[in-house]
Design a protein around this nucleic acid. Sequence first.
DNA 1: CCCTTTGAAACAG
DNA 2: CTGTTTCAAAGGG
Length: 190
Amino acid sequence: MNFYYFKSKILDLYILIFYHFSEEKNQVLLKRIFYCKNLEDINKKVKKINNDHLKQPSTLQEQEILLKLNNLIDSYFSGVNIDLLDAIKQINVSYDLKELFPTEFSQKVMKILSKTKFGERITYSEIGEKINSRAYQAIGNVLKNNPLPLIFPCHRVIRKDGKIGGFMGITKKSWETDLKKKLLNLERSP
DNA sequence: CCCTTTGAAACAG
DNA sequence: CTGTTTCAAAGGG
């Protein structure tokens, strides 16, 4: 597995990406994305993975793809209406749906989430209705464990009472919930 | 089995 | 309007 990170030019935030690169397909296969507050955060996450063959991008091809992904994400952060789930396909970035979401329940949740577009919001309750479940906390659990935030826009899920809801496992006010707010705000149409 | 979980609803103050 | 209590189903240990 490889990792790559960059600092956003728009938001005060680092993005850390774990991925696998296939030279045959010239494709970056996403495994996990993290929002990080600072470099220390990144170090912790990288150490935690502690995979023997963990390395940074080596080939020119993968660097090229990652740079495109970097730019795509920063455009998104600057308020451009981009469907990341779709846009990454065009720059040879992909993911394995079954690997990311092994259970039936999580797949259903993510399928509904994938349908929410830029600027839209959905509530935990509405997701529950659509998948015929009232296990709201379990839905929150799936979203918390979302391996590819941003790509799968879990920040668009808010509470039914209009409150922002939790983010990255944190419910109280924090930089995590502030980030969720920022992400929702930048999607607001001008 | 036991515990926790990015929530909701009902209720108290 | 803020706290509590109960509910609910999935997932990890």
